[in-house]
């Protein structure tokens, strides 16, 4: 199968006062269309850095990142990022406004069409009663749902999710994971998902790339037939396998 996203021996460095700091070193992987691909690793191993590079916020110092064969040079609405931070919604716009606004500017949709399209995705995440609420009136989980609706409405080639559920309580996190799986079943969007939770990685990832820290390198890419199910022996076995891989020197 042709790859949608190809990351080829990518090295990413940050300028520092004393020179440069290499956060990610010679990382390669590919993501197939319709796949849920998880980047997993301990804190500081460069997961967010990699994701920001795919998003086009940071240029790699070596290597190449291509989406459908075209080199990524800057951010764009074909790769929408869902951040961990709750402040990713525009506070001066309502829920509906937040989803409609990017449709008007990125997809150049007319007002009426944009609102209709926006409502379709607001309904998908179950927030139709809150369409006229402002972000500060929503809970954290609801804000993340709006961010997901906004990203889906843009109809991107890929969703880039950087620990979107990490700031939520355990119960809400579980619920959001289920909802994301449901949304993926319905839309089959390609997802690049960053997490440091083994459980989340095994639940969501069709394939899991395990990174080792200092600087971030690929440890291994694991296929995960257990994806999408939260119970059963396969789920537990997959978790143990990932755990062992993370702990291996």
């Amino acid at each position: 199968m042709a790859e949608l996203l190809s990351v080829r021996s990518v090295t990413i460095s940050y300028p520092t006062e004393t020179g440069t700091f290499t956060a990610v070193k010679e990382v390669s992987f590919g993501v197939a269309p319709g796949e849920k691909f998880v980047l997993l690793g301990p804190s500081g191993c460069g997961k967010s850095t990699l994701l920001k590079s795919v998003a086009g916020f940071i240029a790699p110092s070596a290597g190449s990142i291509e989406l459908e064969g075209r080199s990524i040079t800057r951010p764009g609405p074909d790769r929408v990022v869902i951040f961990q931070e709750f402040d990713q919604l525009l506070p001066w716009k309502t829920v509906l406004g937040n989803v409609t606004y990017p449709l008007r500017i990125a997809r150049r949709m007319a007002d009426g069409a944009a609102r209709e399209e926006a409502m379709r995705f607001i309904r998908m995440v179950g927030l139709e009663q809150f369409r006229d609420s402002y972000p500060h009136q929503l809970s954290g989980g609801m804000k993340q749902r709006v961010a997901i609706a906004r990203s889906l409405a843009l109809d991107p080639r890929m969703l880039l999710m950087d620990e979107p559920f990490a700031s939520l309580d355990a119960l809400t996190r579980r619920k959001m994971q289920e909802e994301l799986l449901g949304i993926w079943e319905a839309t089959r969007k390609t997802i690049l998902f960053v997490t440091h939770s083994i459980q989340e990685a095994v639940l969501l990832g069709d394939r899991i790339l395990v990174l080792s820290p200092g600087p971030g390198r690929v440890k291994r890419v694991l296929g995960n037939p257990a994806a999408g199910r939260r119970d059963g022996p396969e789920f537990l076995r997959a978790q143990e396998e990932v755990q062992a891989l993370l702990e291996a020197p």
Binding site: P75, F83, D87, Q88, L90, I105, A106
Partner: peptide
């Protein structure tokens, strides 16, 4: 917030 700036850039602004 830097996140907001990134969101805007992400929309292509």
């Amino acid at each position: 917030p830097p996140t907001l700036k990134r969101v805007g850039q992400n929309f292509g602004l």
